[in-house]
Design a protein around this nucleic acid. Structure first.
Lengths: 156, 156
DNA sequence: TGGACAAGGACAACTAAGTTGTCTAAGTTA
DNA sequence: TAACTTAGACAACTTAGTTGTCCTTGTCCA
């Protein structure tokens, strides 16, 4: 069967959404409603060393204002703490709270479990091949997988 | 190599974005700036028989208000025409203009061309397998590929 | 045939996640 | 010390959605 390029794009997006929707629902069921992929990215970046909001914006390839809004949400929900930086009176230091780390841990577990279901459906070797091929195709494009700036924008 | 489930989700989204970004850029280069996937979906639905805004909303799995906004944009840009329905004084009949059809045609051609590039990179059989596997995985999920309501929402 | 309900569409206010632009305060450097 | 640069706050705007309210028109049925 010869498919169109548009179909291919839809399959990819559909695959992502199938995983993301299921993960979001499960995370909600586990007591973490309203956790979005963006929050996961942000917490991961902070845990990996983004010490303040401006730095977080740079790592996520997003304006510092956008980063500040995300941090505000995360702080409000108790996933990230902000304290004044002792070494720089301008800055507020960012830290992922234990609750934040718990979300990260559970999110990972959920995604791994979903991947396990896919493995059962098409087989481990097949899934590995699919991942390898996607890696080639995406790696050959300008898309960087570790920044979420391109996520929300331009999707619709 | 054992990958995480989160990596898999990112690869899928990244693959989609690689295609969508390239297609958007090419469409812009061909003289159609600001055409979004949502517009493509909407025009296709209208061409396929969504005769008014409320019906369009239902087909796209989106509120009629959201559909009305999309139609307003498409009308402003000359891709869709609205005329009063002779048989129902409440309704405005929707039609894709020749310019709208031109966008659809070129969009298809661009996506097919991009798919061709991927075929060259991993081989036609491999790409067909990838598509078949994705079809299985997505077909097994609640995701419907012909409605864009889930596109913009919940991505970030 | 009239009265109740359904449907199309307009208008307004809101959300989420981004954007630019402007501003202050605090470090850094020549 | 004066001139940048940086961190962050605040405001206004964008896009694609959401609810809710309202008016008008069409349909159905007792």
């Amino acid at each position: 069967m010869t498919r169109s390029g548009a179909d291919l794009a839809l399959l990819l997006l559909g695959g992502f959404r199938a995983l993301a929707d299921a993960a979001g629902a499960e995370l909600e069921a586990r007591g973490f409603p309203d956790v979005r992929p963006v929050h996961d990215f942000a917490m991961r970046a902070i845990a990996a060393g983004a010490g303040n909001t401006s730095e977080l914006g740079r790592r996520l390839a997003v304006s510092k204002q956008a980063a500040a809004k995300t941090v505000a949400v995360l702080e409000e929900r108790g996933y990230v703490a902000r304290e004044t930086d002792p070494g720089d009176a301008r800055a507020k230091r960012l830290q992922v709270t234990p609750l934040g780390f718990e979300v990260l841990r559970q999110g990972e577990a959920i995604f791994d479990q979903l991947r396990g279901q896919w493995e059962q459906q098409i087989g481990p070797e097949q899934l590995a091949v699919l991942e390898r091929q996607l890696q080639v195709l995406v790696g050959d494009s300008p898309i960087r997988l570790d920044t979420p700036g391109w996520m929300a924008r331009e999707i619709g």
